[in-house]
Nucleic acid binder design. Structure first.
Lengths: 234, 234
DNA sequence: TCATGAATACTTGCCTGACAATTCTGCGCG
DNA sequence: CGCGCAGAATTGTCAGGCAAGTATTCATGA
């Protein structure tokens, strides 16, 4: 049958384009959590060789967007309560350091205010996914504004999992986007005032609320299975 | 032609063993900074197929232990002053969060005191590389003690680059290992006393000193070339 | 009927071999 | 002495294949 060759690839290098496309499909929830992603499936869907698909799955696994152990099929994970707490603990660690550094300088990254504007514009009429992306762009710009390549890299990985988790709760959004927009404003204000303590405190408040919303949704609906830690660190 | 097959592989899976071996050779400075690592070289040295070697280089590149852009050979990087500052900024971010969390609980991870004991034992007579490894084990245990998988993962990446940089200055060590041992003790003491502020303050002092030592050595000897940032973040 | 064990299909780990595209190197020419 | 160009070196991607491990199904025995 002709079950292959329907997902178009982006512009850049083949591996890169494949990676980006699969990544998007995962974080958008287009590929459901728990769904299995075999190498041959990716290979045939995109008309690429199996090694290429393999490399793609390995990259996604390294980023935490897929889980797999040896000789087993990769599945997109569904984070349980503990995992979400761990994720947000790490996220707070990175972003607190970022806003503190920014506030110490007292300069707000231009990209952050741009993202914030886009967020407000998307608040009323745009699709949920657009709001999520605007929110992520804001936090991403905040960290990028520090100018630390390594901090940004760590944050990128974390935001990947955050995006994934938010995408999985897409259907039942209960958040008012204007609320988070106001919280964003408060953070920017504190940075502008060169007040590191306040900036950190407001960021923590913001993230704690987001975490609570996620965990609340998780408890309400599919409490489902919590996967065990896949690997005991030596 | 018997020009191949001289580096023995470890016990585990082939890819894993290959990765570990090459990683060790890099962080130990056995492969000099600036040296080029081609896929075929690795493949022939270890008697593995080129795709296997390729995967290995890709993993090391993702960890920051190698640098390469498309179609160019991977080289082991030599961190410049700015890079070292960035590295230690990220390191402080992660480790400060770790010791604060530990101090809030008031419990010292047993693995950390074990590593600390090993460090003191190695202080006088053992080789420099053993001291470095004991030091790294101590900080690693500190972060692992928090129990956050994601924090540990971030830290692991950072320590990889730290290890690499320390290994490159192997010859000209000027540090008295007992000094750093005492600083470690002070950190543990603050954690035990459940004093997060003190723990963070002492950790910062410890890391700042280490950073200054590294930068001092860098300035003294090969100021050399500082490689430009390989990629402009979007 | 239900539980247990064996055979089969599926999937991944790793290999050989090959071709195209790109980058690097050295040589000759203006 | 600078410049461009051909050849070499290196990587990106593919095809095909075998071995090994995992999951599933089916048949057999209690």
């Amino acid at each position: 049958m002709d079950s292959q060759g329907s997902f178009p690839l982006g512009p850049s290098s083949l591996t890169e384009a494949l990676y980006e496309s699969v990544r998007k499909r995962i974080v958008n929830g287009e590929i459901a959590p728990g769904e299995k992603l075999t190498e041959v499936r990716i290979a045939s869907e995109y008309n690429v060789a199996r090694p290429t698909a393999k490399a793609c799955l390995e990259r996604l696994t390294a980023l935490g967007l897929l889980r797999r152990s040896v000789h087993k099929t990769a599945v997109v994970p569904k984070l349980g309560e503990d995992e979400i707490r761990d994720l947000y603990f790490s996220r707070e660690t990175v972003e607190r350091a970022a806003v503190a550094a920014l506030a110490r300088r007292g300069v707000v990254p231009p990209a952050a205010v741009r993202a914030q504007a886009a967020m407000k514009a998307a608040a009323t009429d745009m699709a949920f996914e657009s709001q999520v992306e605007a929110d992520i762009a804001f936090h991403s710009a905040l960290v990028a504004g520090v100018g630390s390549r390594r901090l940004s890299r760590m944050h990128e990985v974390i935001l990947g999992e955050v995006h994934l988790t938010m995408g999985q709760f897409q259907a039942h959004r209960t958040t008012h986007p204007m609320n988070v927009a106001h919280e964003h404003d408060a953070i920017l204000k504190a940075i502008e005032d060169a007040d590191p303590e306040a900036a950190q405190q407001r960021l923590t408040h913001h993230l704690d609320q987001a975490q609570d919303r996620l965990i609340g949704q998780l408890r309400r609906e599919g409490g489902a299975v919590e996967e065990p830690p896949e690997e005991a660190p030596a």
